[in-house]
């Protein structure tokens, strides 16, 4: 797996805003329960969140949804500012987080243009019995540290280890490898895979939808590309036949 470059393609035109991905991620990754107080304090944690933007007024009104998770930037602004290497790039193209190194400066969170880094302002609490649901593959983060989407790295580790052991190859899009959010998404708006594998679904989508030297123009874009973060998440534009203005301006 050393040569993989994991990434995601998100089709905004397919996303319905159902938030199956949100709970799937919370369940897989031991994300603490967001209580009413936590929401009021604006400290809710959702490694993947679904944003809703309005457009227009009744009756010509649109509500549009977009899922936002860590973009696993190749030139991640969160990485150089971390004094202790708690967040870094691994050789599979992912931005990963070592919880037990993090000292909680929150520098990285300030510098993440996508606002996908979440700080544990409190010690997470689960009532006794609910602790049975916690995933033993994933660290339960304590107070004072930063957390964020890991592309469900524990699944990659477990699956590749088992594949190594059994001497088999892991197929593109294998369920046991795919992140929880991707598996849950009812509309398959989320596609995940290896950009280094030229036959993978994500590579094909990137090939088809991203423009290459201006030769082809698909629906692909990277969020806030102008910042030079080189995300490993590609979004596919929402289609709206009534769209008045289709070009993003800076």
């Amino acid at each position: 797996m050393a040569d993989a470059k994991w990434g995601m393609v998100i089709d905004v035109d397919k996303c319905t805003g159902c938030q199956a991905c949100v709970v799937a991620c919370q369940s897989e990754n031991n994300v603490p329960i967001n209580t009413e107080d936590i929401f009021n304090q604006r400290r809710a944690i959702e490694w993947i969140r679904v944003e809703r933007y309005w457009e227009g007024e009744f009756p010509d009104v649109k509500a549009r949804f977009i899922p936002v998770l860590c973009q696993h930037c190749d030139d991640a602004p969160c990485e150089p500012v971390c004094p202790v290497f708690a967040t870094y790039h691994n050789n599979e193209g992912m931005n990963v987080q070592i919880y037990n190194r993090c000292i909680g400066t929150r520098f990285c969170a300030n510098n993440c243009p996508y606002h996908v880094r979440y700080f544990n302002f409190w010690e997470p609490e689960w009532p006794d019995t609910l602790t049975h649901q916690l995933n033993p593959d994933v660290t339960v983060r304590s107070r004072g540290i930063m957390e964020k989407c890991t592309f469900c790295v524990q699944r990659i580790r477990r699956t590749s280890r088992e594949a190594d052991r059994d001497g088999r190859e892991i197929e593109d899009g294998a369920r046991e490898l795919s992140p929880a959010c991707v598996n849950s998404c009812p509309t398959s708006a989320l596609v995940w895979g290896d950009f280094n594998n030229k036959n993978s679904k994500v590579s094909n989508l990137a090939e088809k939808e991203m423009s290459h030297n201006g030769s082809h123009h698909g629906r692909g874009y990277k969020m806030m590309e102008n910042l030079g973060t080189s995300p490993n998440v590609i979004y596919l534009k929402k289609i709206d036949k009534h769209a008045k203005e289709t070009v993003a301006h800076e």
Partner: peptide, 15 residues
């Protein structure tokens, strides 16, 4: 003992 939660800091005002 409690965590940084006792401050007024939040998301996005981390500092």
């Amino acid at each position: 003992n409690q965590g940084v939660g006792v401050t007024g800091l939040n998301r996005p005002v981390f500092w």
